[in-house]
């Protein structure tokens, strides 16, 4: 009886709800911390960034128009499915505590979906016979450079606050440790999250991030995962072209296990203020 051959997974990109290879046909070798071969991952190109932004833009009206309750339910479902794959993620991230914390983080953010407007919205005091209300609205398409130091928990901690309020995202996964990001994409693809709400690209951040920063159809940029200060400065300058909201790289290493607070959600909100006559 011959020994059974293992079926190895080809790690691909996640664009518009599908798992294509890179348009460029390139891939790169992902190794473990000890330098052992783990897998080949797709090496995303400029055109993959372009396609991902188109997919994210297309998904935006539907996702931002969904009720907050519905978005919360879908985020919670992502946590449910992650729970079912704890073992797989534990192997990939080689850290069970990190996986558990990541699942808890989804649940935490899922709960915020229909509460953010209460906390961040407001009924403004006015001196006339009308209401004046401020309500949070999603910014649009958000480009995210995921943190390299925490491939799963860090990724969840930057991604969930972006999509919970109705934004759509293009994520550049951690360059050296991209595999948990693609496995997370497999969960997202089966969790009722509409295609295009989250798009995941693996590859060289220095190659793809400038296209994201210069893209006029991207509305905000999260530079949390950019380690090189020079690159961060260039990206920020490019992002200024169409006044993207930019979240700069953290000055000190982030403790991803600490409770995040609402800052990351608030960073990608616009405030819509309306007045309304009181009627009779």
């Amino acid at each position: 009886m011959p020994e059974r051959l293992a079926v190895r997974k080809t790690y691909k990109l996640f664009i518009g709800g599908a798992f294509p290879r890179s348009e460029s046909g390139r891939s790169y070798v992902v190794t473990s911390v000890d330098g052992d071969f783990l897998a080949n991952a797709a090496l995303a190109s400029r055109k993959d960034v372009r396609d991902a932004v188109v997919a994210a833009r297309k998904a935006f009206p539907g996702w931002s128009g969904a009720t907050a309750y519905n978005r919360g339910q879908i985020l919670y479902r992502i946590a449910e499915l992650l729970e079912g794959r704890r073992d797989q993620f534990s192997t990939e991230a080689r850290d069970r505590a990190q996986v558990d914390a990541a699942i808890d983080r989804w649940v935490w953010y899922a709960g915020w979906a229909d509460k953010l407007a209460q906390v961040y919205g407001n009924a403004n005091p006015v001196a006339g016979p009308y209401f004046n209300l401020s309500a949070p609205e999603p910014t649009g398409v958000v480009g995210i450079v995921a943190p390299p130091d925490s491939p799963l928990l860090g990724l969840v901690s930057v991604l969930a606050p972006v999509i919970v309020s109705g934004n759509t995202a293009v994520v550049l996964a951690a360059e050296e440790r991209p595999l948990p990001a693609i496995s997370l994409a497999e969960v997202l693809a089966t969790a009722d999250l509409p295609g295009g709400v989250v798009n995941v690209l693996t590859g060289r951040v220095a190659e793809t991030a400038p296209w994201l920063a210069g893209h006029l159809d991207v509305n905000a940029l999260d530079l949390t995962g950019v380690a090189d200060p020079e690159l961060a400065a260039t990206l920020e300058r490019d992002a200024a072209e169409n006044l993207k909201r930019v979240l700069r790289p953290p000055a000190e290493p982030v403790d991803w296990y600490a409770e995040p607070g609402i800052d990351r959600m608030v960073a990608y909100l616009e405030t819509k203020t309306v007045w309304h006559p009181k009627g009779v």
């Binding site: 833009r57 296209w211 210069g214 006029l216 159809d217 991207v218 072209e241």
Partner: peptide, 9 residues
């Protein structure tokens, strides 16, 4: 221009 534009423009 060398950068991607969008439907807002």
């Amino acid at each position: 221009t060398g950068r991607y534009s969008g439907p807002d423009y």
